[in-house]
Simulated scan of single mutants.
Amino acid sequence: MRLKAGIFVSALTRRVFADGGMAAVEKHGAEEAGAIFVRIRHRDGSESLAAPAPQTAFDTDHPDGRLFELRKSRVPELEISEAIAREARFDSDIWVVEIETDSPETYLDFGDS
């Protein structure tokens, strides 16, 4: 059974805080199954955007996991803001979580590209 979006977001933010990092919920989405987008802030001032991986990236042995893909990598903040705004217009139930890290793979599972 797949974790509810709200529980996943809560666990993600707690893990980041436990490691001494910063995490914040920028947009609260649907508690049960909202798509989760992660805005990753890097120390050099750039940002990356992790988005839900397409269905084809899921392992048939573990279909309930949450996989992400890196949609944008180390770009200016404005590019991430615009991408998130487009997603929110398409789906108003999305979550946007902001974390500060240079190693997002510590907190997120990325599908094979």
Rank of each mutant, 00 (worst) to 15 (best):
P54L: 09
G111M: 01
A24H: 10
L108Y: 07
S103K: 12
R39D: 13
Q55D: 10
I99V: 14
L49K: 04
K72E: 15
P52E: 04
D112R: 12
A24E: 14
D112Y: 03
T101K: 09
E32P: 01
I80N: 03
I84H: 01
T101F: 09
P63M: 07
S46T: 10
S46L: 15
L78V: 08
P76L: 09
E82C: 04
P76C: 09
E98H: 04
V25L: 15
F17A: 15
I94Y: 04
P63H: 05
H28W: 06
G29L: 14
D64T: 00
G29Y: 01
G6C: 06
R2K: 10
S81A: 12
R14D: 08
L49G: 03
S92L: 08
V9G: 11
A30K: 12
R86M: 05
R15D: 12
G34T: 10
D59G: 01
A50V: 06
E82M: 13
G111A: 15
W95Y: 13
T106M: 11
P76I: 02
A18S: 13
T56F: 08
E87T: 02
I36Y: 06
S46H: 00
I84C: 09
L49C: 11
A30W: 02
H28I: 05
A51K: 04
R41P: 03
D61C: 04
S10N: 14
E26I: 14
G20D: 05
L108V: 00
R41C: 12
R89H: 06
G29W: 03
R71V: 05
K72I: 02
S48K: 02
E26C: 11
V16M: 14
T56G: 05
L78M: 08
T56S: 15
D91N: 15
E98R: 09
P63G: 09
L70M: 13
F8E: 06
D59T: 00
F58Q: 05
R15T: 00
L108P: 00
E47N: 02
T101P: 14
V38S: 12
F17G: 11
A30Y: 01
E26Y: 05
T60W: 12
K4V: 00
F68V: 06
L12W: 02
A5R: 06
F90T: 03
I36T: 11
G45K: 07
I36S: 11
E26M: 15
Y107R: 04
F8H: 01
K27G: 05
A30Q: 09
I99C: 14
A23E: 08
E77T: 04
L70C: 11
F90E: 07
P63F: 02
R89G: 04
D91E: 07
G6I: 07
K4L: 05
